[in-house]
Structure formats: C-alpha cells, structure tokens
Amino acid sequence: EESVKIVRLVKNKEPLGATIRRDEHSGAVVVARIMRGGAADRSGLVHVGDELREVNGIAVLHKRPDEISQILAQSQGSITLKIIPATQE
C-alpha cells in the first residue's frame, strides 16, 4: 500500500527549488534534485526520489516534465503537492 502524502508549500515569486525527472523504469515523475534554500528545501517535506502525483489537484502522470515544471513555475502562494515518499532504505 502506497502512503500518499499531501504537502502544502508556500512559494512567493521564488522558484520551488526542486527539479523533476521521469523514471525510465516505472514512468513515475520523481524529484531529481532539491536546491538548498529553495521553498522545497526550507519546508523539509519534499525529498529526492519522492514520486510526484499531483500539483494543485492536477494529475501529472501523463504530463511531460517540462509541462509539470511550467505548472510549478506559474503557481504562486500555496502549492499543494500529492507525493508518494521515496522508500527509506
């Protein structure tokens, strides 16, 4: 059973501070990098390897990473992410 986590981040004009990529094996959209000091890093709630399912209620599974980045870039104020946390080894 996948544990889905709802994360709310507050982002002003600054970038979210995370990059995403598509996992070639599973097809999932995952967090590739977290930039120090960005909104994602400061929240402490988003981690490399987390699978991104939704951004502000928009399912991202069938979107290209550049489309998802665009949605994230255009979002201001509160951003709600639905993520499946990376499995902690």
Rank of each mutant, 00 (worst) to 15 (best):
Q88I: 11
L45E: 13
G49Y: 01
Q88C: 11
K11S: 13
A32M: 05
Q70N: 14
E67S: 04
G49L: 00
N56S: 02
K13P: 06
R21W: 07
E51C: 05
H47N: 10
T80G: 04
N12H: 13
L45D: 10
N56Y: 00
T19P: 01
I58Y: 07
V60K: 02
R42G: 03
R21L: 10
L16A: 05
D66W: 09
T87Q: 13
H47D: 06
A40Y: 02
S26F: 02
R64N: 15
T19W: 11
V60M: 10
L72G: 03
H62N: 15
K82V: 02
S75Q: 11
Q88G: 13
D66R: 11
K63R: 10
I34Q: 03
H25M: 13
A39Q: 08
L61E: 15
K82R: 06
S26D: 06
E51S: 04
G44I: 00
E24Y: 08
R36L: 07
L61D: 15
S69D: 15
V30N: 05
I34V: 12
E54K: 03
G37V: 02
V30F: 14
A28F: 02
G38Q: 07
D50G: 01
I79G: 03
P85R: 08
A40T: 05
S78N: 12
R21S: 11
R8L: 08
D50Y: 00
S78A: 12
T80S: 10
V10P: 10
T87D: 13
G17C: 06
V10C: 11
I84H: 09
L61I: 12
A86H: 13
S69P: 03
P65T: 14
V4M: 15
K13Q: 12
T87S: 13
I34P: 01
S26Y: 02
E24I: 09
E89P: 12
N56L: 00
T80N: 07
K11E: 07
S75K: 11
A59W: 01
R53A: 08
L45H: 08
L72D: 03
A18K: 01
L16E: 03
E67V: 07
V30L: 11
S69A: 14
D23Y: 04
H25S: 14
S26R: 08
S43L: 04
L16K: 01
S3Y: 13
G77C: 06
R42Q: 10
R33H: 12
G49I: 01
R36C: 07
I20Q: 00
K63C: 06
K63V: 03
I68W: 05
A28Y: 03
I71T: 07
L45Y: 05
L81I: 07
R53I: 15
